[in-house]
Amino acid sequence: MSTSGRILVINPNSSVSCTAGIAAALERFGALGRFEVVRLAEGPPAIASWRDWHSVTEPLCRLVEREEAAAYVIACVSDPGLEAVRATTRRPVLGMFRSAVAAAMTRAERFGVIGFVAASEARQRLALRGMGVEDRLAGWVPLDLPMEVLTDPEAPRTRIREAARALAATGAGAIVLGCTGLAGHLAAAEDAAGLPVIEPCAAAGAMALLATAPQ
C-alpha cells in the first residue's frame, strides 16, 4: 500500500486484542479499505482516566509526524489528542467519538452511549458540548469492565445487553458504542435494544474514505 494513499488508524492504547478488534471492524469495507491499523505501544492498556487521555497526546503527534498518510483516525472513543494532532498535519484527522455521534444523529433525534468506564463520561460530554449537541444525549451507561474483558467474544455480553436496554428505556432512538473494545458486540447491543447501534470504527472509517475521496 502506498503510504500516501493509506488511512492510518491509530489505537492510542497498547492492547493487542483491542487493536485486532478495530482492524476486524474495518474489514467490512473490503476492497474500498485503505486502512492500516497500528497501536501505540507506549500507550496505557486502555484510555480510562484523564491522565491516560492526556498522556497519549504527544506520542500521537510524534507518530503522525513520522508516518505519511492520506488521513488519520484516532481509534479511541474519547478522541484523545484530536486538536493537537490536527495542528500537526494538514491531512484530515478524525476522532471516532465525533464520527459516531454524527452518524447517530442521521438515525435519530436523541441517542444514548454505552461507555467504557464511568470516568469516560466527562470526556465524551466535553466533546458533545464542543459539537453543540449535548442536549441530544438521552442517556449514558458505563460498563466498568477491563479492556481485556470487553474484547472477549462472550464475557461482556450480559452487561452490554443490560446497558442497551437501559438506554432504550431513556427514549434514545440510536445508541453509540462508546469504546473501540466493543467493536465485536454490535449485533448483541442491537438485538437487546431494538434500535440502530453505531459502531465507531465503521463510522470513522466511512468518514475517512469520504474525506480522502477524489474531488
Rank of each mutant, 00 (worst) to 15 (best):
C201M: 11
E148F: 08
A174S: 15
P12A: 10
R86A: 13
L26A: 11
R125F: 07
P80L: 03
P146N: 11
A41F: 04
P153V: 14
L137A: 13
L195G: 12
D52C: 09
E154R: 09
A163L: 09
L182F: 10
L182S: 09
R136M: 07
A213D: 05
S55F: 01
A213L: 15
T3V: 08
A188Y: 09
A193K: 08
M147P: 06
G184I: 08
L167Y: 13
R136G: 07
T3A: 10
S55Y: 04
L94Y: 05
F111Q: 01
A168G: 03
V64G: 08
V64P: 12
S4K: 07
R6Y: 06
V56H: 12
A75G: 11
A189L: 11
A102F: 07
A202Q: 15
G33I: 05
R66D: 04
R91Q: 15
E121V: 09
R34F: 00
A203V: 15
E68C: 04
A24Q: 15
A187N: 09
A192E: 08
L143K: 11
R90Q: 14
A174E: 02
V77D: 00
A84W: 15
V16H: 05
T106M: 14
R39Q: 10
R165F: 01
E67K: 05
L177H: 12
E42C: 03
S17P: 00
A169V: 06
D191Y: 03
A213K: 00
T19A: 09
T57P: 01
P44N: 05
L145I: 10
G33E: 08
D152P: 09
I47Q: 00
S78Y: 04
A48M: 01
E83D: 14
A23I: 07
A23T: 08
P196R: 06
R6P: 04
L209K: 06
T151Y: 10
L63C: 04
E148C: 02
A163V: 09
A174H: 06
L32V: 00
M105H: 02
L8N: 03
A168T: 08
A213M: 12
E67R: 07
R51D: 15
W53N: 12
V56A: 13
M147N: 12
I47V: 15
G130K: 04
V38P: 03
A192L: 03
V141S: 02
T170Q: 13
P12N: 10
L177P: 12
V93W: 11
A102C: 13
R62W: 05
D191G: 02
F35V: 11
D52W: 05
R129P: 03
A23G: 13
H54Q: 14
G115E: 15
S17D: 11
S14A: 13
F111C: 01
